[in-house]
Simulated assay, not measured.
Amino acid sequence: MNPSPPRVLQGVAANLLSEVLPRIPTPFGQQLVGIAAMLDMMVAEEFDRAADRLVTENRIVRDLLAAGCGLLGDAVPPSVPEALAAPAAPSLRVSDLQRENDLLRAALIDLHAAVEQTPGPAARDLEERIWAELVESTRRRHLSARP
């Protein structure tokens, strides 16, 4: 048997809610069990999508940083070319992908601030692309509503 971590976590959550919660006599204890079950469900969902989300975001942010280098030239913040020069994550481990994401996002913040100060339609277009990715990256992190 090869248990799927999301399925195991969802099973634990279901058992906490259906078997354990009704046996807890205090409201505080019931609340703790309910929170633990909801956390299990959230971790199960994030486990299944985290690597894909990070690979997608890292690719998009690298593209935005490259566009910023082309737009700003010598005025690009130093963190941007440094982030672009950093190697991609050495594996698909979430911890490796997250380290890459953290580096790229820090550079994106610097780029965004510089682009906001840059006049012209090309800067507004890049600023709009950056905002669109920030909105989309938030959407990628939304958790499914569970009954």
Rank of each mutant, 00 (worst) to 15 (best):
N2H: 13
N2R: 14
R7P: 01
R7Q: 11
L9A: 03
Q10G: 12
G11L: 08
G11F: 01
V12L: 15
N15P: 00
L16S: 04
P25T: 09
P27F: 01
G29H: 01
L32Q: 15
L32C: 14
G34I: 12
I35W: 05
A36L: 09
A37R: 12
L39W: 04
M42K: 15
M42T: 15
V43W: 10
E46G: 07
D48I: 00
D48E: 15
D48Y: 07
D48G: 13
A51E: 10
D52N: 04
R53E: 14
L54D: 12
R59C: 02
I60G: 01
R62P: 06
L64K: 05
C69L: 13
L71K: 01
L71R: 01
L72A: 03
G73P: 11
D74C: 02
A75G: 01
S79I: 05
P81C: 06
L92H: 10
R93S: 06
R93Q: 11
S95F: 02
L97W: 04
Q98S: 08
A107Q: 03
I109L: 12
D110Y: 08
V115I: 02
R129M: 04
W131G: 01
A132M: 03
L134F: 00
L134Q: 14
L134C: 09
R140K: 00
R140Q: 12
H142Y: 04
H142E: 13
